[in-house]
Computed example of a mutant assay.
Amino acid sequence: MVAGVTTNWAEGEISGLVARGAIIVDMEWNDGQLQSAFVKAKYDTTCKIKYKDRIIEVRLAAGRRVDVKKLL
């Protein structure tokens, strides 16, 4: 999740980023490390999330916010 962003910014946050599949992403990182990450879909769907060397598949119910960090 953070790799593409943190190469240029050691700390920061994104809120309301809409990813492929109408998935809304909010995340915060510090010193290149993920501090928090939440995803929410506009429609029931499944998505894959990559963080470091892990890939997880997450089932999302429409409108329900999921704490990704708890799943990693």
Results as ranks from 00 to 15, higher is better:
Gly12His: 04
Ala37Asp: 01
Gly4Phe: 01
Ser15Leu: 05
Arg65Glu: 14
Lys50Ile: 05
Tyr43Pro: 01
Leu60His: 10
Asp31Ser: 03
Glu28Ser: 13
Asp26Glu: 15
Asp26Lys: 03
Val39Ile: 15
Lys70Asp: 04
Glu13Asp: 04
Leu72Glu: 04
Met1Val: 11
Ala22Glu: 12
Ala37Thr: 03
Leu17Cys: 03
Glu28Asn: 11
Gly63Phe: 06
Leu34Pro: 15
Arg65Ile: 12
Gly12Leu: 06
Tyr51Val: 05
Gly32Glu: 02
Lys50Ala: 12
Gly32Asn: 04
Asp53Arg: 10
Thr7Met: 05
Gly12Asn: 04
Val58Pro: 15
Val68Thr: 04
Gly16Gln: 10
Phe38Arg: 01
Glu13Lys: 15
Leu71Trp: 01
Glu11Met: 04
Glu57Arg: 14
Lys48Gly: 02
Lys40Ala: 11
Asp26Leu: 07
Asn8Phe: 08
Ala61Leu: 10
Glu57Ile: 06
Gly4Ser: 10
Val5Arg: 11
Asp31Ala: 04
Gln33Met: 12
Val25Ser: 05
Ile23Tyr: 07
Trp29Pro: 04
Met1Trp: 01
Ala37Pro: 00
Gly4Ile: 01
Thr7Asp: 05
Val66Thr: 11
Thr46Val: 11
Val39Ala: 01
Lys69Val: 15
Ala19Asn: 06
Gly63Ala: 03
Tyr51Gly: 10
Arg20Leu: 09
Val58Trp: 03
Asp44Asn: 14
Lys52Leu: 14
Asp53Lys: 15
Ile56Thr: 07
Glu13His: 14
Tyr43Ile: 00
Ser15Phe: 08
Gly16Glu: 10
Ile24Phe: 07
Val39Glu: 02
Arg64Lys: 12
Ala19Trp: 09
Trp29Val: 05
Val18Ala: 11
Ile23Trp: 06
Arg54Ala: 08
Cys47Ser: 06
Val18Gly: 07
Leu71Arg: 10
Ile14Phe: 07
Asp53Gly: 06
Glu13Trp: 11
Val2Cys: 10
Lys48Phe: 00
Ser15His: 08
Gln33Ser: 09
Lys40Met: 15
Ile55Pro: 08
Asp26Asn: 13
Gln35Lys: 15
Asp31Val: 00
